[in-house]
């Protein structure tokens, strides 16, 4: 029985505690909350939608297997993303890819109310941005994604990509600078 609401009023920390006590509803809520960002990072590193979905599953499985070792030094999301990025890199090595890449033409957020022409324009622009993103060095790409898509602080990003706060900030700004050059009309 669902004993608590699924909205943002229940903090991740509370859900993690319940999940540690074996509560599967808490596990499901955490999956609902974070699967999109996990998938996005897997896709950014692996570059294939199906494999990214598999890597997302593996990332969650590994995270919940080691949930007892989560001590709350960082947020659950930061901890989960660190696992996700390691898992994606491992996945990439497993399937023998030589280079991390971003796949073109994946789905993007579109408003169902858009007319077909608007949707074409949005998809085209999204493709252009993803192509530009795929041209960034790995740490710059991850810093930009984690800062913009996930709203993480530079401190949190530094933990995930394994660098200092300053380095994460520099990577982010250099990435944005490069994207602006690539995307200028």
């Amino acid at each position: 029985m669902d004993e608590y609401p699924r909205d943002e009023t229940v903090l991740d920390e509370e859900l993690v505690k319940r999940a540690q006590d074996g509560d599967n509803i808490a596990v499901n809520i955490l999956v609902d909350r974070h699967h999109a960002v996990v998938f996005s990072k897997c896709l950014a590193i692996i570059g294939d939608e199906d494999l990214a979905a598999d890597a997302s599953q593996e990332s969650f499985i590994k995270a919940f297997r080691s949930l007892d070792r989560f001590r709350g030094d960082s947020s659950f999301k930061t901890w989960l993303l660190a696992i996700t990025i390691n898992e994606s890199r491992g996945f990439l090595r497993k399937i023998g890819r030589l280079k991390e890449q971003v796949l073109e033409g994946v789905r993007e957020i579109v408003d169902p109310g858009n007319d077909p022409m608007t949707e074409v324009v949005i998809r085209s622009e999204a493709d252009r941005i993803r192509k530009a993103m795929s041209g960034l060095p790995k740490k710059q790409r991850l810093s930009v994604m984690l800062r913009i898509e996930d709203g993480l602080s530079f401190k949190e990003i530094s933990k995930i990509i394994g660098s200092s706060d300053v380095s994460a900030r520099v990577n982010y700004h250099n990435g944005i600078h490069r994207l602006r050059e690539l995307l200028e009309p």
């Binding site: 999109a36 941005i129 993803r130």
Partner: peptide, 21 residues
């Protein structure tokens, strides 16, 4: 633009993850 270009996951991904976990 970068934020809008964020990919969305397959519709059944969350369900698959829940079952696997």
């Amino acid at each position: 633009k970068i934020q809008v270009a964020t990919p969305i996951p397959p519709v059944d991904l969350a369900a698959k993850i829940k079952i696997s976990v």
